[in-house]
């Protein structure tokens, strides 16, 4: 089958539209990310990042963070879940100047299981949010920062 020039141009325009549609979410995601990191309150950060504040608390999200950390400049934190098709795992520290700490995107084949080290400036609630499709699951824990400890 030979393609007429007209047909070729038509196909090209379809392909271009499809490509643009695929690329657009990545670009807008980047903008949301900046806005979300700049938010000064947790609820605002949720809204900016997820477009929603309705989080479902669940024990299926396992959050591991010390209740009273030794060094508030390097608090070990890990999150894992057995929820399927996870898109991302995000960490929030309510009383930090910018509550959104990090977002970990989990592509297919990568396990919903991450760990890192974070700064916690004062006694606060720490929340891990697992996003799958349009659903948001969360697990929170209180972390107490004591005075006079040796920060790094």
């Amino acid at each position: 089958m030979t393609l007429s020039r007209r047909k070729f141009v038509h196909l090209l325009s379809i392909a271009t539209t499809a490509c643009t549609a695929l690329i657009t979410p990545a670009i807008s995601w980047a903008a949301w990310v900046n806005d979300a990191f700049n938010a000064n309150e947790t609820e605002e950060a949720y809204k900016k990042l997820f477009g929603s504040t309705s989080l479902k608390k669940t024990k299926k999200v396992k959050l591991k963070v010390p209740k009273v950390p030794n060094n508030n400049n390097a608090v070990p934190i890990s999150v894992k879940t057995d929820i399927q098709n996870v898109d991302s795992i995000s960490l929030f520290v309510e009383n930090n100047p910018q509550p959104l700490v990090a977002i970990f995107e989990i592509p297919d084949g990568t396990l919903p299981k991450i760990s890192t080290r974070i700064r916690i400036y004062q006694t606060t609630t720490v929340t891990a949010v697992v996003k799958t499709g349009e659903q948001l699951f969360s697990k929170s824990q209180r972390v107490t920062i004591t005075d006079g400890q040796c920060g790094g």
Binding site: N73, A102, I118
Partner: peptide, 19 residues
């Protein structure tokens, strides 16, 4: 296979693990 967006609340010399 992995993409982390970090903010300044992540500790100095960031450590991240995944599988």
């Amino acid at each position: 296979i992995f993409l982390a967006h970090l903010g300044p609340s992540v500790s100095e010399n960031p450590y991240v693990s995944f599988s």
